[in-house]
Design a protein around this nucleic acid. Structure first.
Length: 617
RNA sequence: GCCCCCGUAGCUCAGCGGAUAGAGCAGUGGCCUUCUAAGCCACGGGUCGCAGGUUCGAAUCCUGCCGGGGGCACCA
């Protein structure tokens, strides 16, 4: 019984057979479908079948279709449906307590046997799906913008993997070349005095980032001086300033492969990367491969020349190479400078070509801020002109900026919120709260620290993931640092409560997990209460939420569903005693339900959103 | 000028063609001698930016307008 109807997908399959049986003599049923959705709160039942689409196709009255469907369903999936009611164009189904008990038992059993959360999809090795995210520049440390990118990219990669879309490969394309890198190198060479991260005890990315800021400050001073003393225009001064000239010279030497420049470049990049690795590790973000623009831009140039030969690009008198995309509503676009050096898009052309050679991916997801929408439109169009088979794999997953109440974050002006610093600050706050708490009094200092970092991570990640990627995040510190309400720690807390119950069940009642499953199969039980039906409904629909979330490349859907589940569970927890003051039968049932809520929270958080779930807090 | 994204409660957001539009925060008032109060309950708070249209049904889709943001570089 419980095995026959694992989730709403299974119910839809059953409904489809009804349509097949009835379309033969009742008209066109082929393209219509019964949407299945959770029943809204005010009506009895857990699952609602929406009749409108079919009603229209069959040209029958909703009442008639609904009642016939109900009768048919009740027989078809025996013992599942306890009651049903047609309201307007909706058929509300109420599942029997017996069904739910068996459903829950089957899920728990499967979980115990397979050691993982049962889902309707298997992880697959084919096709290959590439997800590029993070992709930082090596001239400054990671900030809140990267944190949003990282958590989003990470979660989307996991969503695709758990819903069985294919083998997901996570890529981090390091932007390690260009004028900004040269500026930083120049500052270090001029004013660094031979200092290193080791000699100063600074984290490598911060160490290097400071030189970038230093360069920008000196450069700004120089420009101001030129304007003041030489009477230059701002624009002219910015172009003529000796510092920028020197940086450009450095870039030329870099492109020419000057060993001295390359050596400094390599060393400084390594410092930064070491710092990045540490930050990624703390945030729990992993990549399958790091790629470097310095290694892909050359291939990009080749593609540009290829297009020139094919006649899809054209050369101007100054030698620069362009593509004309005006016929598809875009502009003309520079692909290679007159002096043969590459621009931003050149590198992206090369990168995707190399990826195609290596992976033959079916999809190339770029997790990149929304300001680059146009860039990716152009990229796709250019690849099409080149006739590349992978042109249509390009998918830009754009997300909006993280802004401060004061406005945009600007690294040049030092108004960014640093990824490391913010996590430190959150961790310190969490630690303070843990120290004040009664519950953690017997935990060691080490354990408290670890827990504090997990709480901090949950807070920051959930804060980033809970909003639609298309929407700006207005970063208000107090809100991000709030561990209550609609927050990551709220989910952790709910999970930890459940784990405490399961521990106590074992210790005080001898109810281990196997025992719960066994007893659940043996005992009858009392009527389900409303809170239980709502929890079961949410658990039943969980795979659908996952699917939709993956379908839309939007983890916020999942984040929301998990929050609602936790919220509902806390209500339940406050309403009924799980362990104490309940009969043995009730105890087993309530524990089983709690356990499954916990596993579902853990699956969504740990497996997909990559938010840790401590067993106690 | 053209293109893209966003306008829902005081604030931050859910709701993505279905039923009486929901949360968190903020405000007010309750609940720790029984399982973790990072929790729960109650109250107050909304012409879903505006105007048309599409249909059995629109916060949701289409058109126009208004407001906020981003983009249209021999910057990345």
């Amino acid at each position: 019984m419980g095995g026959t109807l694992k989730d709403p997908f299974a119910l839809r399959e059953v409904l489809r057979t009804w349509l097949e049986e009835h379309s033969q003599y009742e008209g066109e049923g082929s393209s219509v479908d019964f949407p299945v959705q959770p029943t809204v709160v005010h009506y009895p039942g857990e699952v609602t079948v929406v009749l409108f689409p079919v009603v229209r196709a069959l040209r029958r009255r909703p009442q008639e279709v609904g009642e016939r469907l109900l009768r048919w369903l009740t027989r078809r999936i025996e013992g599942v449906i306890e009651g049903g009611q047609v309201v307007g164009g909706f058929l509300n189904l109420r599942f029997s307590g017996e069904f739910w008990r068996e459903w829950l038992r089957a899920r728990l059993m499967q979980w115990l046997e397979e050691g993982r959360y049962p889902l309707p999809w298997k992880r697959k090795e084919e096709p290959v799906l590439l997800v590029e995210f993070s992709s930082p520049n090596t001239n400054k440390p990671l900030h809140l913008g990267h944190v949003r990118n990282n958590t989003l990219g990470d979660a989307v990669a996991r969503l695709l993997a758990v819903t069985g879309r294919g083998r997901v490969v996570r890529l981090n394309l390091i932007n390690d070349r260009g004028i900004h890198i040269c500026k930083t190198m120049l500052a270090w060479m001029k004013w660094g005095g031979g200092a290193t991260p080791q000699s100063t005890g600074k984290k490598g990315d911060h160490f290097v980032g400071d030189f970038y800021v230093l360069f920008e400050r000196r450069y700004k001073d120089e420009v101001e001086r030129l304007v003041r003393e030489k009477g230059m225009s701002e624009e002219e001064a910015r172009r003529e300033a000796p510092l920028i000239r020197e940086a450009q010279e450095l870039l030329r030497r870099w492109e020419a492969g000057d060993p001295e420049v390359r050596q400094v470049w390599k060393m400084m990049n390594e410092w930064v990367l070491e710092g990045f690795r540490e930050t990624y590790q703390r945030y729990g973000v992993m990549f399958d491969a790091f790629e470097f623009e310095s290694e892909t831009y050359a291939r990009g140039k080749e593609l540009v020349y290829e297009g020139l030969e094919k006649g899809v690009f054209y050369r101007k008198e100054d030698g620069s190479i362009w593509v004309d995309l005006t016929d598809e509503g875009l502009d003309t676009k520079l692909l290679l400078r007159g002096d043969g050096t590459s621009v931003y898009i050149t590198q992206d052309l090369g990168t995707i070509d190399l990826r195609w050679q290596k992976y033959r991916m079916q999809r190339m997801v770029y997790v990149v801020a929304e300001e680059q929408r146009y860039h990716f439109q152009v990229l796709k169009a250019v690849l099409r002109r080149l006739g590349k088979p992978y042109a249509d794999t390009v998918f830009h997953l754009s997300y909006a900026m993280v802004e401060l109440p004061e406005g945009k974050m600007k690294s040049r002006e030092g108004t960014v919120i640093d990824a490391d610093d913010f996590l430190d600050e959150l961790t310190a706050l969490a630690l303070e709260q843990i120290r004040c708490s009664e519950k953690a009094k017997d935990a060691s200092e080490e354990e408290k620290r670890e827990l504090a970092e997990q709480v901090a991570l949950a807070a920051i990640k959930f804060y980033m993931l809970r909003v639609d990627p298309n929407k700006k995040i207005l970063f208000r510190k107090e809100e991000a640092m709030d561990f209550e309400g609609y927050s990551g720690p709220f989910l952790q807390y709910t999970y930890a409560r459940i784990q405490a119950l399961l521990r106590k069940a074992q210790e005080e009642y001898g109810l281990g997990r196997e025992a719960i499953v066994r007893l659940l199969g043996e005992r009858g039980f009392a009527e389900l209460i409303e809170e239980e039906r709502r929890l079961l409904q949410m658990l039943f629909f969980y795979p659908v939420r996952l699917w939709e979330s993956a379908q839309r490349y939007d983890p916020s859907l999942l984040a929301n569903a998990l929050y609602q589940l936790a919220k509902e569970y806390n209500r339940y927890y406050a309403r009924v005693p799980i362990l104490r003051g309940s009969s043995e039968e009730e105890r087993v049932w309530r524990l089983a339900l709690s356990w499954w809520v916990g596993e579902t929270l853990a699956h969504g958080c740990v497996e997909v959103l990559n938010i840790p779930m401590p067993a106690r807090m």
